[in-house]
Design a protein around this nucleic acid. Sequence first.
DNA 1: GAATGTGAACGTTTTCACAGCA
DNA 2: TGCTGTGAAAACGTTCACATTC
Lengths: 217, 217
Amino acid sequence: MVKKNDNRDFSQIPRVVIKRLFKYHSALENLLSKGTVKVSSKSLSADVHVKASQLRKDLAYCGEFGTRGKGYDVKYLNGKLAEILGLHTEWNYILAGFGHVGHAFVCYEGIFRKGFNVKGIFDIDEKKIGQVFRGIEICDISKMPEIVREHNVQIGVITVPFDSGQSVCDKMIEAGITAILNFAPVLLKPKKSIFIERIDISRELVTLSHYLSHHKE
Amino acid sequence: MVKKNDNRDFSQIPRVVIKRLFKYHSALENLLSKGTVKVSSKSLSADVHVKASQLRKDLAYCGEFGTRGKGYDVKYLNGKLAEILGLHTEWNYILAGFGHVGHAFVCYEGIFRKGFNVKGIFDIDEKKIGQVFRGIEICDISKMPEIVREHNVQIGVITVPFDSGQSVCDKMIEAGITAILNFAPVLLKPKKSIFIERIDISRELVTLSHYLSHHKE
DNA sequence: GAATGTGAACGTTTTCACAGCA
DNA sequence: TGCTGTGAAAACGTTCACATTC
């Protein structure tokens, strides 16, 4: 089964679309585990609560993966999406701030399963430094450049409290990190242009409180 | 200082705008703590990395809070945003799934500071049930309706692993919860129309792996 | 003069509707 | 006939530019 894949520039796909591609991928994984072989845009889109036309438009960013009149081959589409999403590669990350959030992150099942591996954990707490967690020694941040270099680390995860986020970000960039996932309640201003994704739990909670305040029936 | 506030329907504000309003609010808190009294749309918008015109348009959803030629009163605008975001109210929540993520959530500083209070923690693990954490006894899910009723709980936080998310969601709705924050790697299908916000750490990580795969220089 | 508030222009994302293919 | 892939249309969100107000 050969499909055209006309030198598309996957870097131009909007972030919203990427996030939906991941939803499709997850739904396909699920279908795959149930042994489903074929799926239509209608059925797959229903699984992830989007319109069928949107699913098809999203896929159109990437190529042509279906067969008119038939639908999509679950395994083939799943593989293609994994490829586009970079899930066929193993990625290494370091984590700064080994508090509750950092701990939860490292233990989070889904992350390991998707091929993301911790290669370094950093904290400023003297009591934590030197401890070993899941085979990784918790280090002082001064060891960061060495670890990033030695283990070919691309990703930095920031789970420090409050304002130390910025200085950690600076140090990660200096060490050679090119993409950051930021849980710190701070808007990072990177010295160099790199990719930053932020998760702000308070912000999501506030959408709830806004809803509750104004949607009383 | 009296401003018009012409019976606007805050429930119609798009979620993207709400999230930016929260950013403005956070930046204003920061200014307030530094003793700043007045701020212009230009300066405030720069703090949160948006265009001044966007900040003004966002505020236009809510009313008129500034003075032409002068700017905004920091304290006044901050208060108004807090009101719109529902941060002048105390909200009660319950949490299901007291693993790493649940633990991190309950301990997360920002949540408590913003007026969100835990009123119940649930887990299926026999060993955890009966333990007391920060004054809250960890219970079996069967106690949920009682606790929701007694403590006037509006929010449910789902931090269970994998697929038990859906059944927990059902039970929360049955118990009277009207807004859910979902960390489970599952798309919830609520039996009744309620507000659901999802945080998916894997999804955010995947935007990083996509970036790294296709932006090599 | 300075900075807000807003209609109009612009750009992006979603949806529609159907041509094209198995 | 059934379902994909895609232009065209609609909806939505952002930016511009300036009239308005202090």
